[in-house]
Design a protein around this nucleic acid. Structure first.
Lengths: 246, 246
DNA sequence: ACTCCGAACGTTCTAGAACCAGTC
DNA sequence: GACTGGTTCTAGAACGTTCGGAGT
C-alpha cells in the first residue's frame, strides 16, 4: 500500500518544485519545508491549477490532514513535514492522510477532547477500582458465609450434645432421686441444672430465638450475583471488544 | 450585561458600513448579511486596520465564535447572523461570543464528540449499576457478619454451658462412684460421657480447632472499606462537582 | 466487461484548544 | 491576578468524489 503517494502529496511536491512559481511558493533555504511567499497569488493563481478550489483554508486543512505543521514566521507562511524534503520524492509514499482516529479505535490520539477524555479516564480508573473492590468483597462475603455455615453446624452439634447431656443428667438425676434420699450435693446439682432462671440461660434462649430466624442453609442465603464481575470486567477497556451494549 | 456590543462586533459593523470599502466588503442587497468581494484586498488592506492581524482565517474564526454563518455563494464570501442587519446597530448588543459549551456545563451541545459521549454515557450507566451492586453487597456482607458475630457469641455460651454440664456431671459422677457401688446405669452414663472415642466428639473437636483459627471479634475481621460508596457516588455525575481527583 | 458498494480521499464550514492581551 | 475576548493552529464533521474490488 506504499506504492504511490496520494495525489495531494504529488501536487504539492510538484508545485513547490515548479521554478515558475518561485516567487509564490518554494522550498525554504534548508530544503526541509516549503514557504508560501504570496498568499493571495497562491490562492488565486496556483491553487485552481492544481485543485478544484481556490480556498487557502481548504489547502491548509489538507496539509493538516497529512500532518504538516505550520512554522511560526513573520510575514510568511511555512509548512513542514518530517518526510517532505527537497529532492526526497521517494519519501512521499510514507506520508499518510490521517483518518479520524476517533472513529478508528475510538482513542483520540491527541489533546483534543481533553475534558471528555479526562472523564473517560476517570471512569476507567474508577471502574477498575470498583471492579477490584467488588471482587474483594465477593471473596470476603463468601469466606464469611462459609465460616457462618461452619458455625451453624457447630452450633447444631453443640445442641445435640447438650440434649445428650440433658438426658444423661436426667438419668443421673432420676437415679439420684430414686436411689438416694435427700442429699445436699444432689439437690445442689439438680438445682443448678434445672433452674432456667439464671441469667446465662435467658441470654441463651434469646439468642437462640434470633438464631432460629437465620437461614441455616447456604442455598437459602441470597447468593452473590455473578453478573457483577462479568459486566465490570467487560467494561474495563479490553482491547478487542466491539462497543459493549449496556 | 447587554450594554455594549463587543469590539469585534462594532468593528465588523463599522467596516461593512464604510463606504470607502464598498468594493471590498459591504452589505448584501437585502441588507441581512455582508459580502466580502475581494478577499485578498480585504485580508491585506482592511483587516490590519481593524485588527491585530491580516489572517482571513482568524477573522472567520471570530465570526464563527459569534455564531455567524457562511452563506453558500459563487465567487463570493458571505456571512450572516440573525441579529446582524443593515441599519440595526442596536441589535448588536444581543450577539454573544459563545464560550465553549463543553466547559460551561460539560455537556457538549451538539452532535460533536459522539463517540466519546457514547462512551461516557455507557460508563455512567455501568457506574450506577455497579454502585448499586456494591451497596447491596455491602449490606449483605454486614448482615452476614453480624449474624456471624451472634453465632460466635452463642458458641461461646454453649461452650460455657458445656463446661458447667461437665463439672456438674463430674459432681454427679463423683457422687455416684463415691456413694454407690457399681451399678450398670451409672457405668453406662459415665462411659457415654467420658468416652471421647465416639464419632460426634471427634467431629466436634475438629470443628473447634478450625473455629479457633477464626477471628472472634468483629474488629479482627477486615471491615468493608467505606471508600467504595463515597467514590462511586462522587463519580456518578453529580452536577456541582469540580473535577474530582482520583 | 459491468455495476454496485464501500473505503479512502477532497472540499467546506465550524469548533477545539492553546496561548496572548487587555481590563477590572 | 483572574476573567473575558482575540489570535493562531489544528481537528471535527458533513458531504461530495474517486477508485478499486467483489459479485454478476
Amino acid at each position: 500500500k506504499n506504492k504511490h503517494p496520494t495525489t495531494f502529496l504529488c501536487k504539492i511536491y510538484e508545485m513547490v518544485n515548479e521554478e515558475s512559481l518561485e516567487n509564490i511558493i518554494s522550498w525554504t533555504a534548508e530544503g526541509d519545508s516549503f514557504i508560501i511567499k504570496d498568499c493571495s497569488a497562491f490562492s488565486e493563481q496556483v491553487l485552481p491549477k492544481y485543485f478544484r478550489h481556490n480556498n487557502f483554508s481548504s489547502f491548509v486543512r489538507q496539509l493538516n490532514m497529512y500532518d504538516f505543521k505550520k512554522i511560526k514566521t513573520e510575514h510568511n507562511i511555512t509548512f513542514s513535514h518530517r518526510l517532505f524534503k527537497k529532492n526526497k520524492r521517494n519519501l512521499l509514499k510514507y506520508i499518510h492522510r490521517q483518518t479520524s482516529e476517533l472513529y478508528v479505535d475510538n482513542k483520540p490520539k491527541k489533546k483534543h477532547n481533553q475534558k471528555l477524555n479526562e472523564k473517560v479516564n476517570e471512569y476507567e480508573a474508577e471502574q477498575n477500582k470498583v471492579d477490584f473492590l467488588v471482587k474483594h468483597l465477593e471473596g470476603e462475603y463468601n469466606t464469611v458465609l462459609e465460616r457462618n455455615q461452619k458455625l451453624i453446624s457447630m452450633l447444631i452439634q453443640y445442641r445435640k450434645r447438650e440434649e445428650r447431656f440433658q438426658s444423661l443428667l436426667a438419668t443421673y438425676s432420676e437415679y439420684a432421686t430414686c436411689k438416694l434420699t435427700s442429699k445436699s450435693s444432689s439437690q445442689e446439682a439438680e438445682q443448678e441444672f434445672t433452674g432456667n432462671s439464671d441469667l446465662e440461660s435467658e441470654e441463651m434462649s434469646a439468642s437462640w430465638n434470633e438464631f432460629s430466624e437465620v437461614p441455616l442453609k447456604l442455598e437459602q442465603i441470597q447468593p452473590i450475583t455473578p453478573s457483577v464481575s462479568e459486566n465490570s470486567s467487560a467494561c474495563s477497556l479490553g482491547e478487542g471488544q466491539k462497543k459493549p451494549k449496556y
